[in-house]
Each structure stands twice: as C-alpha cells, then as structure tokens.
Design a protein around this nucleic acid. Structure first.
Lengths: 251, 251
DNA sequence: CGTTGACCCTCACGCGACGTGAGGGTGCAC
DNA sequence: GTGCACCCTCACGTCGCGTGAGGGTCAACG
C-alpha cells in the first residue's frame, strides 16, 4: 500500500510543492515511482516524513534534518526521545512567554512601566538557571501572584476601564486627603486604605491585612510604584503606606 | 533615555541586521537619529519591538504585523490579549505533539504500527472539536494510559532492550505452550498470563486483574495487536486472552 | 594630538524553504 | 472520446533575513 503526493499532502498537512522540494534536495525521496513517473510513498516514507516534520517544527534546517536522519546509529527511538525532550523545552519557553505577557498586562493595570530587561527577558534565548530565581526575587512567586495573573489575563476591555476608573477615584480621594493635611492614621485615611484593600481583593487577589501591609512597603521600596503615586502628589506613596499600616493595626 | 542598535539587539536577542531590516520595511522605525545618523530607540520603540517579536514568534508575516500594530483602534492591551490567546493555543498544540510522540514511542514498545492518520493527526493543522473524543475512543484517555505515557517517555535505550527481551521471552513461552496444546485455563498458561501481567505493571502501568482482562479483549479486537501475536503463531492472541481470563477469574 | 578599536552607516548580493504559475502527460468516468 | 482531477518538470518570485564591502563616528589611550 502506497500513497500519491496528493494523498500524502492531505494526510500530513503539507503542500505538494513541499513534497517535491523534499524530493529535490534528497531529504525525502519516495521509495517507488509508477511507470508514468508518479511518486509513490510507502509506510516507511511516511515514517520518515513524520520525523522530518517534527524536526522542522522544532526549527531545524532541512539540510541538518537530512544529516541527523541519515546518521548510521540512529533509529526511530533515538529521534523520538530527542524530539520529546526538545518539545518539552519548547513548551517550557511558551509557558514563560505566556507568563511574560501576563506580567505585561498586570504592569499596565498597575500603571507601571516595565524595564527594557523585563520586557525582553523571554526573548533572551537561554539562561535557564538563575532565571526563575530572578523572577521570584522581583515579582515574588507567591500564590497571590499566580492568582492575580490568572484573573488579570481574563479581563475584558470594559473590565479594565472599570478597574482603572475605580483605582483613579481611590487615588484622587487619597491625594485630596493628603493635601488637606488629614493624618495618615486618622479615620478618613484608614477608610481610604480599606477601600484600597477592597479594590485589590476584587480585582487582583485575596488581600489580607498582612499582605496589604507588604504591598504598602512595596509602594515605597519599588521606585516604579513610588513614581506612579508621587507623580500625583509627592509623598503620596508613603502616605498610603502609613494609612495602610494604621488601618491594619488599628482595628 | 534611548538605545543604540547594538544595545537593543543584545537586549532583545535579535541581530542588528534584523533591526535594520525592520527599519527598511517600515515595521519599526526608531523615533530618533543622532546627527551622525545613528539610530536611537526610545522606550516606546522597545514596546513596539516587543509586540513585533511576539507576533513574529506566533508566525505572523512581518507585513501583517505592521498592519495590525498600526490599526487605529488598537492599543497595547488589545495586542497582549490576542497574543495571550494565541500563545495558549500554541502551547496546546505543542502539548498535543508531545502526546503524539509519546504515543509513537509506546506504539514501538507494543510492536504495533501506527496508521498514517494516527501518525499525522497532530500536523493536520486544526479540527479541535472531535479530536479529543477521537483520541479517547482509540486510545482510552484513562489514568492508566497517562501513567504509561509518562513512564514510557523516560526509558533509556537500555531499558527498551530489557523490556523488549522480557516481552519476547514471555511471548515465546506462550507460543510454546500454545503449540504444545496446553489448555488456556491450565496452570502453566495461567502462570504465563500472570507473568504477562507483571510485565505490564513493571513497564507500563499498574495492571489489576480487571484491567488485564480488558487488555486481553483488546488483543483480539484491535487488529494491530492481533496481528503482532498471530504473526508468531496464528491464534496466539485469542489463546492469551483466554489465559488472562482464566488467570483473573481462577484465583 | 593622533590613532586604535568598537561601534555605526548604507548598499547589495545570497540563501533557505518553499509559492506560484506555465506547459504538458495520465487515467478513470461518463 | 472527452472531460476532469491529478501528476510531472522547469523556472522564476518571495520573505526574512545573513553576510560581506566600503566607509564614517567617537571615546580612550598612549
């Protein structure tokens, strides 16, 4: 039982031209031809085609594929094992890219700018060792963070507008309180901190008082957060931190 | 703060030539140039480059990337959401390919040939609906099957030789018993069935008596299994099925 | 102050992996 | 016997860069 170019092309999801090309360059020469010169692909040819397509998917140049498939001491199993490993690595890379996109979305939600390094770390090809550690150091690889990413990724544009509007009014009210000279441990500032906590819980992750305090610290230690608040009124980041602290300990 | 071509190329993991090319075709034109004509990339340029690289990774042609990035009503969020979805799909595809490779390895372990359709289903581009159902129908999407794939994928070449040798002696002994006319429900045949069950448990998955009986049925219903056994001695598949049944019910 | 070395520039040709016809044979079905 | 679907072999085109050639720029070091 053998197959024509058209049948193989439909089966394998490649064009006839591609099969012709692979024949031309000697990568996959059909074992038989009919008297009329029609190519006929056997089962073994299909097996080889499968290997070719897998390696191609993995980004190998065709010439190199020809070499590794013709290595004398290699059999199907060798290739399947190698392909399995390489696919695993590729899958890992894609998952990292997904995480990077989610981080970018969250950064937008927070109104902070990513540094160029953050923006491109996923394209920097490979330094698999310290990478995870670095991400954890900067972002905190916590349960909260994972939950946040999941939720953020599913928001629609309308959700975003809603979220941003809510964040804006809280920040405005906070700025007004600050400018009015209300104490950060006063009732009004504490109420604003509580509204802020609710906002985080609703949109990002379950935010306990302890976590809220950590977040407050982050606002004055991470310059990107500090900048977003202090752009409204200088000193606002620290005012919010104090209000959060008062709200967490004072009830 | 802006960056030279060299700095951007190191940051983003692309060559300088690539940046030149993107400039030539108008995909990414740096916002500034120095008096000497040196390209200077701003933060916004880097943001655009990130989008370009993500869409490129997703297989979009550069011209199309230029179009969708210049759509009037699109902003970063639109793109991030689209990229997120497409990456999810791609990740899914890779996971399917990994599963397909694992199936191919297992098929080799079982000494059965995959049909051409099975070999290429993962390349057939897209028919996401019935696909999972089909895989389940043919392979059974059970816990046992998942375990088997996981274990099989991690075997070394030495493991395989060992496994195959063990399978071969069992099959040989079974063929000998069959040819000697020993009854399938006799003690010797039942012992062979028990050895077979142990073999499956050791190498593939925890094989209870019930599951072993299902496997026995499969050997006579799936023509590919039937063929492997009956190639040794015609009728061997059914003999094994009967021995398994006797071994399962008779103790 | 000159020069060295690391960058940067603009052409411009080359290449890998096919796409896309042109021009023509094959084969079964009605 | 004549469509119609399929197959063949050239052969040129395209996309996304790679790879020099030939030459300017600029901070640093002697």
């Amino acid at each position: 039982m053998s197959f024509s170019v058209g049948q193989v092309s439909r089966l394998a999801g490649v064009t006839v031209r591609t099969l012709h090309h692979y024949d031309e360059i000697g990568l996959l020469t059909p074992s038989e031809r009919t008297r009329a010169g029609y190519r006929r692909y056997t089962d073994d040819d299909l097996l080889r085609l499968q290997q070719v397509l897998l390696y191609r998917e993995l980004g190998f140049p065709l010439e190199e594929i020809a070499v590794i498939l013709d290595e004398p001491h290699s059999d199907e199993l060798t290739h399947l094992r190698r392909q399995h490993e390489l696919l695993r690595i590729k899958s890992e890379r894609i998952r990292e890219m997904i995480a990077a996109v989610e981080r970018a979305m969250e950064a937008r939600a927070m109104n902070i700018r990513l540094t160029p390094e953050e923006r491109f770390e996923v394209f920097g090809d490979f330094r698999p060792e310290d990478h995870d550690a670095e991400v954890e150091r900067r972002w905190g690889d916590t349960r909260q963070y994972a939950e946040s990413r999941r939720r953020v990724a599913s928001y629609t544009k309308a959700d975003w507008l809603h979220l941003k509007a809510e964040a804006a009014t809280i920040t405005e009210d906070l700025a007004a309180a600050f400018k009015a000279g209300l104490p950060a441990d006063g009732q009004q500032a504490m109420d604003l901190a509580e509204r802020h906590r609710g906002h985080i819980s609703r949109w990002f992750y379950e935010c306990s008082y302890e976590i809220h305090q950590c977040l407050g610290e982050l606002y004055v230690t991470d310059p990107r957060f500090t900048a977003t608040f202090d752009a409204i009124v200088p000193g606002l980041a620290d005012y919010l931190r104090l209000a959060i602290h008062a709200n967490a300990t004072g009830r």
